[in-house]
Design a protein around this nucleic acid. Structure first.
Lengths: 233, 233
DNA sequence: CGACGCATAGTGGTCCGACCAATTCGGCGA
DNA sequence: TCGCCGAATTGGTCGGACCACTATGCGTCG
């Protein structure tokens, strides 16, 4: 059946590559159901244990989805699925790399906000406003953080680039922001944050891309500079 | 030993979270060796099979590294390790999402090139020149592609943000570019590519960030527009 | 005749035990 | 003292068994 394959790496690693190749070549379509673990293992001539490790690996990468009792399916392969793992980068990064991540976020967030200013619909703008007012109406840090995340998520979605939005989602993962903002907010940065959010919102309402870009860059840049100062001494 | 943990998700998933948490909390340092698979499984009260799946998952994410006969180690947790999986996104994306990926790359590449113009050292600049001349001296598409990748990689490295460089590396993964450029180059885009690379190099030599940014944006933008046109009709 | 409910086969999830293969390190001998 | 060899350690693979959940279809009941 399967000719002698070059013995590179572990059998599990080879199985991962094989399945990835099948998807890349279009032999497996998004949403399609795969053969059973037992059949797949037999096809590649490996044990079910090894095949399960390969499937698990592709599952955490957001490529496959295993439904207990039903089968294994290819995900929709949308940006959100595949970039979900981006969050672990943010969660496991410390020190200087946090600043680098914020720098990347500043660049992408400012671009996305600028694009959003030109493209945002009335409905989307209303949603943004909802989170803005909700954020200013409470004192619970948890709730503020949640609405803050939603505020930026709505804007990123309005930019019309799902891939960019998914990356920004990862760069703003809950634990990441919680870690950085814990200290930032303790220095009374609430007022400043509100001003900056208001500026972003104003630029969006005015459909002014350049102002929106600048406001978003300044917003993220503030946190970035604060964090840089924290790490300096 | 371990109290009743809430039964959320599979045991493997829980094991993944546990190990991730250990690293995030600093109980496991980069480069440190973990207990054996058998010991880890016993500690979390699960079977070795399940623990192996968890380890395999964290291995493909670039968090852990298993050395046959030696043990399991935490990686250096550098940007390159954790963002290696970014390449699969590029490899498995098709259609409109390729354009989105190129848009993200245009934004980051132009920023990185602009930063590089201000920070690049003489040695790094010499390395960039080496790949530029080598790229223009051959007709072999494979070799051109390799030097093209190295050209941009050196520039990204000179920008001083390892995280950004790692993301760009993923966005320029070999199979990704090979797929897009196959058609692009067939339309006689070689000359244009050379001109654009020369323009980038000139801006770097002149230490002109704004010119470098513009040249890089135009360079990626060209491919982006071509691809957009391909998908349109 | 149709809708509901239960039995059953199918499928992923977990566990166990065994053996293989690569590394490591200590002791033995030249 | 140096080098080699073998045993212990440890990850890699395999096969089988059983559990948990789904889906399907058949039979029953309204």
């Amino acid at each position: 059946m399967d000719e002698a394959a070059p013995q590179k790496g572990t059998v599990t690693q080879r199985a991962i590559e094989r399945i990835k190749a099948m998807i890349a070549e279009g032999r497996l379509e998004p949403g399609q159901r795969l053969p059973t673990e037992r059949d797949l293992a037999a096809q590649l001539g490996i044990s079910r244990s090894s095949m399960r490790e390969a499937i698990r690996a592709l599952t955490v990468l957001g490529v496959l989805e295993a439904r207990h009792g039903s089968g294994i399916y290819v995900t929709a392969l949308e940006a959100g699925d595949l970039l979900e793992t981006f969050g672990v980068v943010a969660d496991l990064s410390r020190g200087p790399r946090l600043v680098e991540l914020l720098e990347v976020r500043r660049i992408l967030e400012s671009t996305a906000t600028g694009l959003a200013a030109a493209r945002i619909t009335e409905d989307q703008l209303a949603e943004v406003e909802k989170h803005l007012t909700a954020m200013n109406a409470t004192d619970d840090p948890e709730e503020i953080l949640a609405h803050d995340l939603a505020f930026h998520r709505e804007i990123a979605a309005a930019a019309g680039n799902d891939t960019m939005a998914a990356i920004l989602e990862g760069l703003s993962s809950r634990t990441f922001r919680a870690r950085v903002w814990r200290g930032y907010q303790e220095e009374g940065a609430f007022a400043r944050t509100r001003r900056e959010h208001a500026a972003i919102h104003r630029a969006l309402c005015a459909r002014d891309p350049e102002a929106a870009r600048a406001a978003a860059a300044a917003h993220v840049g503030e946190v970035e500079e604060w964090l840089r100062a924290q790490l300096g001494p």
